[in-house]
């Protein structure tokens, strides 16, 4: 996309601005839809009806919420480190948003088609840790500090299973470029890496248990990285009040919120691109092409967003030690096994 813009407009600042702002066209409407989805899904799981008055079945409520948050008084605690306090939400959002640059939305659109796409994603998504730490520290609130310490520990721990499970897909596809990985899986459902990729049948059968495991672990680690239930310890409201964003209000709080939803889709996007064919059509050549590609990618991504919402409103929260246990003693060893086995099968 960036190359295309450069050809059209020449090498000017405008190219960078447009290139950087394009994913916003997706992220902002997505956040509105996701808020509505979260509220409606949770409500129907809980025998409620949720928003009903603003617009048809309350569909305009998220818009009203955003307007409300914009108008809210933006308070900064007197004892807070004011500079860090202001910067933190943007840094958190940046970490999530920058990830969209390497996400292939369709065969025709990817923010920047770098060969180290996966590596870049892993690196940039850790940036939000610094933002969370900053938010907790700058708030000058013990609960916030607790929340940010927890989130740092959690995100760093879950980077490892996430990176390892990404590695499984990368080994099969043979590329770190997410666009390449997506193209690799083109040709229908049976070519998705979760089913072993477009390899000979025998290899596929052998690979299937390992790719499936890695796929689930990637999704679990993804949920942990976006701090959602059952891994929402950093903002566990019943333990830490609201964790690192206790002291935030108004627009800064909204940006944390936006970052969470952006991250939700980012994680879903990574899972989809690596294991579920990305923008490729599950029906092979039927309904394929750049526009359909965009549709498939978003549809698959939204399905995983829905899954995250579903899980959130079903499960209780883990405890700190159980969280670490899950990461280090369960997920990571399983992935080492997966990588070893996948490597062996690919070599044979």
């Amino acid at each position: 996309m960036y190359e295309l813009l450069q050809n059209l407009l020449g090498d000017s600042l405008l190219v960078y601005v447009i290139g950087a702002a394009l994913p916003l066209l997706f992220v902002l409407p997505f956040a509105v839809v996701a808020v509505l989805l979260e509220m409606k899904v949770s409500a129907h799981m809980q025998d409620r009806v949720a928003y009903m008055y603003t617009g048809w079945h309350g569909v305009l409520q998220p818009v009203a919420d955003i307007l409300k948050l914009l108008q809210k008084e933006d308070t900064i605690p007197a004892a807070a480190d004011k500079f860090l306090f202001r910067v933190a939400p943007f840094l958190v959002f940046m970490g999530g948003y920058a990830g969209f640059a390497a996400l292939p939305f369709s065969s025709a659109y990817i923010g920047t088609n770098i060969d180290l796409g996966v590596f870049y994603l892993l690196a940039i998504s850790s940036l939000s840790v610094i933002g969370l730490m900053m938010a907790g520290w700058a708030s000058n609130n013990k609960w916030s500090l607790f929340g940010s310490m927890r989130s740092v520990g959690q995100i760093i721990s879950y980077e490892i299973p996430a990176a390892l499970s990404i590695l499984v897909a990368v080994m099969i596809a043979g590329s770190l470029n997410l666009q390449e990985v997506s193209k690799f899986q083109d040709g229908g459902l049976q070519n998705w890496i979760v089913f072993g990729g477009p390899l000979p049948l025998l290899q596929k059968i052998l690979l299937f248990p390992f790719t499936l495991t890695a796929f689930f672990i990637l999704f679990i680690a993804g949920i942990a990285e976006v701090n959602r239930t059952p891994f929402d310890l950093p903002e566990a409201e019943s333990e830490l009040v609201q964790g690192y964003n206790t002291e935030y209000s108004g627009m800064k709080f909204a940006i944390f919120y936006l970052a969470e939803f952006a991250n939700m889709f980012l994680v879903s996007g990574i899972v989809v691109s690596l294991y579920l064919g990305g923008w490729t059509s599950p029906l092979g050549d039927v309904m394929s092409g750049p526009i359909w590609g965009f549709f498939w990618f978003v549809a698959k991504g939204m399905f995983f967003v829905f899954l995250q919402v579903w899980i959130r409103w079903t499960l209780p929260r883990l405890r700190v030690d159980q969280l670490m246990y899950t990461s280090w003693k369960v997920l990571t060893p399983f992935l080492f096994l997966c990588i070893f086995a996948v490597g062996l099968i690919l070599v044979l």
């Binding site: 949770s42 799981m45 809980q46 025998d47 409620r48 239930t229 059952p230 929402d232 566990a236 019943s238 409103w313 079903t314 499960l315 209780p316 929260r317």
Partner: peptide, 16 residues
């Protein structure tokens, strides 16, 4: 107690 544990849904079921 469900809320304390981070599960919100049982709370509303109980209230229902």
């Amino acid at each position: 107690y469900g809320i304390d544990m981070g599960a919100f849904t049982p709370f509303l079921w109980a209230f229902r």
